[in-house]
Design a protein around this nucleic acid. Structure first.
Lengths: 346, 346
DNA sequence: CTGAAAGCGCTAACAA
DNA sequence: TTGTTAGCGCTTTCAG
């Protein structure tokens, strides 16, 4: 009779199955099961089921150095960009028996603290969605040989493996669309330029404009990827005296804030000004007007980041490379040809 | 010279600080530090810093039986209801040095599998947002003495501690509002009745209607909390020949789907039919028309659930009780007085 | 206040 | 194919 007080251990099932606990351990591990006779495997499995045995990962982690966990650092899980990324990560990891430790570093804790606590937990690697272009944390982790994959953002040096969307291409799609329907005076509302998404989308905007022989009709950096920052940026743009018939925003929330601010000034979207977002967040197809935007494959991004990390943990070569996913344009009602006679004016 | 190959251990810092590793362990634990002379604490801390020491939680988990982790089961992290709940959980746990292990059980894995894997990881408790009214998993976990807190949903028996919003009250707020602006013929689109939120909101709707001396003007059960299910439910309602001037939906997504379906039939919201949602999800203030809804304190719900679990882990008494939070009505443009002459008709 | 000893549950290495 | 031995790094006795 095994003690019912606490969980069954290998010793318990070894006793019950009349084998040594080492044998029991082997019989229960798919990777080592072949070393054990079928009959013994059967007995051990029966005993394990009977005693409701579950391997103690704390013990095996201590012994093997592998915890079966991966840490994920997110800036703000309530930002709609991140749930599908997290979901992709979780699905890829769960398929391999790994678990996700999440830390939302938006509020109380710093990414550094969170990363340290995760390393104490002996996570086998880290997936980071919080990194800025020059991130001391990422640098430090790299020096400490911690396995790291960046997701959605990349570092300036490009020395860390990352899975990102092609941010330059995304803005090119936006600008190409606006130019194709007749816009010549296009302004840009960027995200924080300290983030790769902010900097690259701005660069992509400028390059795409140049390719059309256009010069930016206005620019403002938004301090955050939020509606509020989008409103503020737009007011700044309007006050600067810039004249434009379209705004390419670096993010859907910024675009929504921008629409709000434009409407507050009596401007109609898209009749007076077209606005295009970025990300294709949930519900932006139902706002008024439905938002034209650039769709990013967030789930895929998370999934690939996790796969990359898993491969790297297993020593698969070539896992230091960066994966770049293709975004696509989604045209809805917030973009339309510029008002007649205005496109060429000013 | 400590070996630089792998992470520093207590033995390493004990050596460096010229004390026994037991003493080093005590010096680094705030709860046992007082047993050690200040001078030794200083030396040990210096050594720890110098060697970049981080306690190995796998080892301490094995020794103490406490892993410092809590598992969270979510049905679908991309459903906007759950990110703020997860955030609340994470913040409350992080403040106490705990980590969250998340599993999204929507896709590949079943909640049962996920829970088993989590128990193998020796999570100290489980926070479950996936439970149905009669949930075999929850029952089993209860029997196995696993510490469990339900969040957002509760079990039929009410035997498990849970943190939920007052779903009956939420529907009462919705019905009271519609009645106050003149509606008499109100229909209900419920969520899945196998979930406490679906069943309780339906019950709340019916009770509130009765309190006003009204009988439900129509009803359809939506198979999921999604726009698609809301559309389907609404079409069902329309085809059933029900006559109504308002719909109280059990969820914002259902409400948005409903609006879509109504508009598809040439009905205007709110001029012909008022629609009211539930949850106050992000961006529903910017859809067309802005959605009147019942706001639920999701972050608070997650935070309180985590606190409840932590207290329970520490043996604080009274942690088996269920916490019920108060929702509040948010009036926007999707609700308005019924069309003149229609309120009393049919 | 500090040290010695023991052992949590598991698996790698070696032996039979 | 199975068993023996040892030890991962920590913390909890118990002794001094």
């Amino acid at each position: 009779m095994p003690k019912r007080s606490s969980a069954a251990t290998l010793t318990d099932i070894a006793l019950q199955a009349q084998v040594h606990k080492t044998t029991a351990s082997r019989a229960l591990d798919p990777a080592r099961r072949h070393m054990v006779s079928p009959e013994v495997v059967r007995r051990v499995e029966a005993a394990a089921r009977a005693l409701n045995y579950r391997v103690n990962r704390a013990a095996s982690a201590l012994r093997t150095g592998r915890s079966g966990t991966v840490g994920v650092l997110l800036p703000d899980i309530t930002n709609p960009v991140f749930p599908p990324i997290l979901r992709g990560i979780e699905q890829a990891l769960a398929a391999e028996g790994f678990f996700v430790l999440v830390a939302d570093t938006g509020n109380e804790q710093s990414p550094d603290q969170a990363a340290d606590r995760m390393l104490a937990q002996r996570v086998e690697g880290l997936i980071i969605a919080t990194s800025s272009l020059h991130d001391p944390l990422v640098e430090r982790l790299g020096q400490d040989q911690v396995k790291v994959v960046l997701v959605n953002r990349r570092d300036e040096a490009g020395s860390m493996p990352a899975v990102v969307s092609d941010d330059m291409l995304g803005m090119k799609l936006a600008v190409d669309h606006l130019a194709a329907i007749g816009h010549r005076r296009i302004a840009h509302l960027s995200g924080p330029l300290g983030l790769s998404t902010g900097a690259l989308r701005k660069a992509g905007f400028e390059r795409a404009m140049a390719a059309h022989g256009l010069t930016p009709a206005g620019f403002a950096e938004c301090a955050a990827y939020s509606c509020e920052a989008g409103e503020a940026g737009t007011r700044h743009l309007l006050r600067s005296g810039a004249s434009f018939t379209a705004i390419a925003a670096a993010n859907d929330l910024i675009a929504l804030g921008s629409i709000q601010a434009l409407q507050g000034e009596g401007l109609r979207v898209p009749q007076d000004v077209s606005v295009i977002g970025h990300n294709d967040m949930p519900l932006v197809d139902r706002v008024s007007p439905p938002l034209t935007t650039v769709r990013i494959l967030h789930y895929e991004m998370g999934f690939r980041a996790a796969r990359l990390l898993l491969d790297s943990l297993r020593g698969v070569p070539g896992t230091t490379s960066t994966v770049v996913l293709r975004p696509e344009l989604v045209v809805r009602a917030s973009s339309a040809p510029p008002p007649v006679g205005k496109a060429e004016r000013a």
